[in-house]
Computed example of a mutant assay.
Amino acid sequence: MVTPLGTLDRTPPPFFRQGPSALTKLMFFSALAVFLMVADTRLKITQPLRTVVATVLNPVERILRVPIDAWNGAGDYAMGLQHALSSEAQARAKLAQQAERSSRVEQLQAENKRLRDLLTLRPALVVKSLPAEVLYEASDPYSRKVIIDRGMAQGVALASPVINEAGVLGQVTRVYPLSSEVTLLTDKEAAIPVLNVRTQARAAAYGTATGLELRFQAGNADVLPGDILQTSGVDGVYPPGIAVAKVMTVDRKVDTGFARVTLAPSAPPDGVRHVLVLEPVGLQLPPKPEPVPEESAKAGKTRKAVKK
């Protein structure tokens, strides 16, 4: 049977049917994306949807992270356990060393007391201390001073030494009712008498912009890098034996005959929070004997004779 040509269906089958062109689709979806971005930025229309999605997916995320967190936790636990065991071993070794040093110190203190009793020397001074906290640095940019929260009401005296666990920090230069001003050793106006532990030679350390230095040292002075300097205790302010500084460089200048010795403070002043305020040693020393009137008269006659 032959079908007439006019009755044939000339439409393409569904497989070959085509909608809008690719360029039209690209332009439409690009415009839609731009519109959604602008609308989201201006009107926040997707914020509630994001909130709902995040809330719903949060338990799922937590469940999926359980294996990862467990693996990381196991690794951290193993590392922490190893670090704790290592720290415990180091702490035990330090404790043993400190116990040995403590026994030697007690023995030396007992021996020192026996020797002082034998020589009828005055007992060693007991230095009183007062804990304090650094409030803030002084506002003067050309000085190195800090303010502490202890003053006359707590018994702080003028010229009291201020130290921490590392060594000397400075000295109280002003006392207020509830606070005090401490001039640090690195201040340009600061000075402290020191004793070289290696040579037992006395000197004076002065503050500089970069730290400390020993002044008026002869070019052939026995000072070497690495020497430890402590308070000498001869000034009546600082107790003896407190760490002050360490010698860093020694520049022996031939043309002047002096040596420039730079020091690094044992107690860096930056970042200090808690300190100890010591009682000046001079407050515990016996008063100076007053001159006898006869001796004063003889001394006056001698001076007159010398003038004549």
Results as ranks from 00 to 15, higher is better:
G207E: 03
T186E: 14
S160I: 04
F216C: 11
S129F: 04
G207A: 02
L184R: 00
T183D: 05
R144S: 15
E133Y: 06
R114Q: 14
L118T: 12
Y176T: 01
V127L: 07
L119Y: 13
R150I: 04
L119V: 10
P131D: 08
V156H: 03
P123E: 13
Y176L: 12
M152S: 15
G170P: 05
E133K: 13
E133G: 01
A132W: 00
T208V: 03
V182W: 00
Y142Q: 09
E165Q: 15
L158R: 05
P193R: 01
L195P: 03
D140N: 15
G167F: 03
S179R: 08
T173D: 10
V175K: 08
P161L: 01
P131A: 12
A132L: 00
R215C: 07
L130V: 01
Y206S: 15
A191N: 13
L135V: 15
I148Y: 02
A166R: 15
R202V: 02
Q154L: 05
Q200Y: 05
A190G: 08
S129E: 13
R150K: 15
K145D: 14
L214F: 03
L212T: 08
S180W: 01
T120R: 10
V126I: 14
P161E: 11
P177I: 04
V127P: 13
T183P: 02
L195G: 05
V182F: 01
A190I: 06
Q171L: 15
Q200A: 13
T120A: 11
I147S: 06
V134A: 08
E189D: 12
V146G: 02
